[in-house]
């Protein structure tokens, strides 16, 4: 099985450390990358895509330095950046055919694969339309399609569900789940539920470091006993929400509101311990 290893990976911009000595080994599967803005997720992904050179440490693919592997490594990569541009006068079809050429796909294979991917992301009907006519969600789907061109063994997706409606998000999750066999898929998102559904392992990043790495149940176990559900009268709900670390708030028919609270100790009388979820974990670490 393919092994992508980061050893003491560091990236520094001037005095700011964007990535601090990350050492991780990834094998096949879907990895969710969680972290607040500025946690270093995008920098880590760019380092993995060789778009930035690390200040220290190495990235090894099956024991070989990816910098030295060069084309061979990039031939295995698929990448969807968080912010990127398109050629507005290109059609979706031409854009993918161009990137297929950049990725080294043969012309015949490229045409077939591009058509398949456009259909998979629901853009086949619009494949001959210019990209400048596309909505944000359509552009994002096109971005997902280009990342999957060339059947990459390592797929890196930075905020892939941004701009997608719920139906499209479901389609995306199914697509990634089906695609992920025998591949390494890394995806970062603010939408925790996306990761929760499909990621086998979660990496939680804070201040350039991976502070937790494990399966969703392993990760959430860290805050077991710190998630509570409390029922309060609806008129006081906002007061409580301002005082406590509330991950969810649901009004009930009986005039009460159910608060999901993250706290080390029982936050109030009648609070019941609940099974922690990823969203709770996210809030636990990134409350501020």
């Amino acid at each position: 099985m393919m092994e992508l290893k980061m050893t003491d990976l560091t990236k520094q911009y001037g005095r700011k450390m964007a990535v601090k000595g990350i050492s991780l080994t990834l094998t096949g599967g879907v990895y969710g990358l969680l972290g607040a803005n500025g946690a270093g997720k995008t920098t880590l992904m760019r380092l993995l895509c060789t778009l930035q050179k690390p200040t220290g440490g190495k990235i090894l693919l099956d024991g070989k330095d990816v910098e030295e592997l060069g084309e061979e490594y990039r031939g295995l990569l698929g990448y969807l950046p968080q912010d990127f541009k398109y050629y507005p006068d290109f059609t979706a079809l031409d854009f993918l055919l161009y990137l297929a050429a950049v990725k080294g796909l043969k012309e015949k294979t490229a045409g077939k694969r591009v058509a398949e991917l456009l259909a998979a992301v629901g853009l086949w009907e619009e494949s001959r339309h210019k990209i400048k006519t596309f909505s944000g969600g359509m552009k994002q789907r096109l971005g997902i399609a280009q990342a999957m061109l060339g059947d990459p063994k390592i797929l890196i997706l930075d905020e892939p569900t941004t701009g997608l409606d719920p139906k499209e998000r479901v389609r995306f999750r199914n697509l990634i789940s089906a695609f992920s066999k025998n591949r390494i898929v890394i995806l970062s998102t603010h939408i925790v539920s996306d990761v929760e559904f499909i990621a086998e392992k979660i990496m939680v990043m804070k201040s350039g470091q991976v502070i937790h790495f494990g399966s969703p149940s392993e990760i959430t176990a860290k805050i077991k006993g710190q998630v509570w559900e409390c029922r309060v009268p609806t008129e006081y709900a906002e007061k409580y929400a301002a005082r406590l670390n509330v991950s969810n708030l649901r009004n009930e028919e009986d005039g009460n509101t159910l608060l999901r609270v993250i706290a080390k100790e029982r936050p109030m009388e009648g609070a019941v311990a609940a099974e922690p979820k990823l969203e709770d974990l996210y809030l636990y670490y990134f409350r501020e």
Partner: peptide, 15 residues
């Protein structure tokens, strides 16, 4: 402006 991320991470983007 942003497209270079797609090109440079592609197999032949830099060559």
């Amino acid at each position: 402006g942003g497209v270079e991320q797609l090109i440079l991470s592609g197999r032949y983007g830099r060559t």
